[in-house]
Simulated assay, not measured.
Amino acid sequence: MIFGPRLALAALAVPATLLLLPAAASANDSKSPLTVSLGKLDCRWNSITVKITNTGSPPKSDTYTVKADKVVVDSQELDPGDDPETEKVQIPRGDTVKISVTSQLSSEQIFFDKVTNKCRQPYRRDRRDHDYGYGHRLPYTGPPADFMGKLATAGGLLLTGGIVWWYGSIWPRQTPGGRRYPGLKA
């Protein structure tokens, strides 16, 4: 007799759990497949890179919206097989910007971060930068041409002086009889 009511209650619990399973599955479908990561702050351009990837779990396309201080930077759809998207967010020097990414599939914010630009001075070029062209430093193409010209001139003068010295030592040649041209009548 004691087992009868318990068995009846257990039999009622089985259909109730079957009714809850589809609800749990539909709640899981609205989860966003997007993951977001921030790059390093670039002091040269006063910007930071936001990388959005569709992991494919669940395998659905999703539309994201990137906002910086509640201003839309970009909104785009991303499919599961696509390459990660990168968005640049400008951050003025010394300011703090609130970056958020919202998923349209889950209708909720999937990423939020405050980023402060602590770059103190404007970007300065160094020797490793290779932005050549008008208004920039020219590339290194060897030693300066005026120095090479001076070296070539000095070498030419030494060679010419050596040849003149050698030729001066053999001309006019002295003969044992004192005359240079013995058959010449003077």
Rank of each mutant, 00 (worst) to 15 (best):
G156E: 11
K88V: 07
P139S: 10
A152W: 00
V50R: 06
Q104F: 03
E87W: 01
S100F: 00
Y64P: 04
T55D: 15
D126M: 04
I52Q: 08
T153D: 09
G149A: 13
S57M: 03
D126K: 03
W166C: 07
A186Y: 01
D79N: 09
L20F: 04
I110P: 06
G133D: 14
A25M: 05
A27Y: 00
Y64Q: 06
Q90I: 05
N117V: 05
Q76F: 01
D113R: 12
T102W: 07
P176Q: 07
G81V: 07
V36Q: 05
D79W: 00
T17M: 15
T96W: 01
P176G: 10
A186T: 11
K51N: 13
T63N: 07
T53H: 09
A154I: 15
P92C: 09
T65H: 02
Q121W: 02
R179A: 11
G161Y: 06
Y167M: 10
F3C: 09
L9M: 12
N54Y: 00
D82H: 03
S107M: 12
P139I: 14
T116D: 08
V97N: 03
V66T: 10
S75G: 06
P80H: 05
F147L: 10
L21M: 09
I2F: 03
L21I: 11
F147H: 06
D95K: 10
M148W: 00
T141N: 13
V115F: 02
R6W: 08
V14Q: 11
A68R: 04
G56S: 05
P22I: 11
W45I: 14
S57F: 00
P144E: 11
V97K: 07
L38R: 04
A27H: 02
R120F: 02
T63Q: 14
I99M: 04
V36S: 04
S169T: 15
L38M: 08
K70G: 01
R6C: 08
I163L: 15
Q109M: 09
P122L: 11
N28K: 09
L7T: 12
Q121A: 10
K70Y: 03
E85K: 14
Q76K: 13
L34S: 10
D126Y: 00
A11G: 14
I163D: 03
L184W: 05
I48Y: 04
A25L: 15
P182H: 04
T35E: 10
L34N: 07
A16M: 11
P80T: 05
D69R: 04
F147M: 10
I91E: 09
L184G: 10
A152H: 01
Y167R: 09
K150M: 13
F112C: 03
A154N: 03
Y132P: 04
L41H: 08
Q121E: 14
Y123T: 10
L41K: 06
T35M: 07
S103D: 14
K114C: 04
R173S: 12
K51R: 13
